[in-house]
């Protein structure tokens, strides 16, 4: 099974994610996959949910906080500016208070609460995932490619979402019970139209948003999650642990992509001892990867002679991952496996 096959066989998997340790090439793979899909005639959005995003670097264009930017036809890239989003959100809350009570300014205590809230550690993640809901619900693209945060953050968000979800359930119940009391009281008094509980409405909407963003990460039908690994001891150990954790949170795993493989063909050439040792070590790790993941390894990507930045290099990477691009008009044919170095 190759990477290209996965996309052909499961066209309903529209949310694509590459996960793995930091610095293994998640952004590179996200960009190259987006490029490949766009060239095959799909409308694609690749967006970054990482506060330290690097899509701007890889596309060599400043897209930070500028909304979706079309890079090549059908390929849109977006980097979410979490700070800006949070500031706008705070202003919205303030304005709402002023409007609701006709106040000149927000009471001091409330104002300091609003300010302190923005400094919370989970704020950025929450803000980003919340904006993702807006992006995904708008459904303007065929494919959504998440340039994911490093493993820890994604897991953190998932666990946060499940804890959060339970809390919201609890306070929604509490709120409903409160409403029940008010209803009975006004029934006995036989008066007062009960006004609709706005807080309850908000709670239900919050619950919907949290569920939408976390359910995408765990939807087996629509989500394809790929682990990026490299043939190195530490990366392997970490990935095994992470795969375990992800399984616990029901993140559906579609396969593994091995990055940074030094072309073994080099061994036939006259190369320094240093490189020969690296090759030998790599051979061991590749054998281990094969033993651990076997069929689940979808592609091996060679270490390139230079950094993958700019469109020509992204195109090259896309070819290494998916083979040469088939024309969108022709029937999907099994593409050539060009991934093996």
């Amino acid at each position: 099974m190759s990477l290209a096959n996965i996309f052909e066989e499961y066209p309903e998997r529209r949310y694509i994610m590459f996960g793995g340790k930091g610095g293994l090439g998640k952004t590179t793979f996200s960009a190259a996959t987006a490029y490949h899909l766009a060239k095959s005639g799909h409308r694609v959005l690749v967006f970054s949910v990482d506060p330290q995003a690097s899509l701007s670097d890889i596309f060599e264009r400043d897209i930070f906080g500028k909304g979706p930017v079309e890079i090549v036809p059908n390929l849109f890239a977006q980097e979410i500016d979490a700070d800006q989003h949070i500031r706008a959100y705070q202003d919205e809350i303030r304005q709402k208070i002023l409007d609701m009570y006709g106040m000149e300014e927000v009471p001091e205590e409330i104002e300091s609460y609003i300010q302190a809230a923005a400094a919370e550690p989970a704020m950025e993640e929450s803000a980003i995932f919340d904006q993702v809901v807006d992006i995904v619900v708008a459904a303007e693209y065929d494919y959504y490619i998440y340039d994911l945060v490093p493993l820890g953050h994604a897991l953190y968000y998932l666990s946060m979402a499940s804890v959060y979800d339970e809390w919201i359930d609890k306070i929604t119940d509490l709120r409903e019970e409160m409403e029940e009391y008010s209803k009975v009281a006004s029934l006995i008094q036989r008066d007062k139209e009960l006004e609709e509980d706005m807080i309850l409405q908000e709670l239900l909407d919050i619950k919907y948003r949290i569920n939408t963003s976390s359910s995408i990460l765990t939807d087996k039908e629509k989500t394809a999650f790929f682990f990026v690994i490299i043939p190195e001891e530490m990366a392997l150990i970490d990935t095994l642990k992470a795969a375990d954790l992800f399984a616990k949170y029901d993140v559906p795993l579609s396969g593994y992509v091995v990055n940074r493989v030094i072309p073994p063909g080099l061994a036939q050439q006259n190369i320094p001892e240093y490189l020969r040792n690296r090759l030998k070590m790599q051979e061991g790790h590749l054998a281990r990867i094969d033993e651990l993941f076997g069929e689940q390894v979808l592609a091996q990507i060679p270490e390139f002679e230079r950094d993958v930045t700019g469109l020509p290099m992204i195109e090259k990477m896309a070819e290494a991952m998916f083979g040469s691009i088939t024309e969108p008009t022709t029937a999907p044919s099994k593409s050539v496996e060009g991934a093996n170095p």
Partner: peptide
Amino acid sequence: LFTLIIFGDLLGVPILPPYHMLRLVPYLV
């Protein structure tokens, strides 16, 4: 109790991460 869960931070009892809870603040003013 409800207000405590949402505004807990103010009394030094952080219970819920405040991102979404901020939306409820206007109603509790």
